[in-house]
Amino acid sequence: MNEYFSDLFSGAKSLLVGLSVTIREMFKPVVTVQYPREKLEITPNFRGHTELVKDPETGTHKCISCMMCQKECPSDCIRVKGEKREGVKGLALVSYSLDFTKCSLCGTCVEVCPTAALEYSQEYELAGYSSDEFRFDLLKRLEER
């Protein structure tokens, strides 16, 4: 019987100690963010899907259609098409399609690119109604930018 009451007492005491922790924390600054209304700044190093880099000098991309990214991609989600054009050294880029439904965001394409023509997008709010919305044509996206 004695033990029963001492248990009751020590249990109540620990509850009070725990409660004092939560009360103390209650008056500390709020750490959560009300997401769709408030947004945190994300780091510039964020690894989103890839985009073609816009070269400030020429105003266009730096891709030379060497197919390195296509070959190295472990998920096989990049298709690069280039063609021979007069006055252009190497191959001119015709289309650069990224199937983001298959991409595993590893960054291999950005690392192997010899001309640093790829960069990571800062976009993280990606939602759509069909998978076609995630088959990006990066060349078109670059022109729209």
Binding site: D7, G11, K13, S14, V17, G18, V21, T22, R24
Partner: peptide, 14 residues
């Protein structure tokens, strides 16, 4: 100490 020990580790019910 002030959070995890007081709130959890030392809690007799836990």
């Amino acid at each position: 100490k002030p959070i995890y020990y007081d709130l959890v580790t030392s809690n007799i019910i836990f």
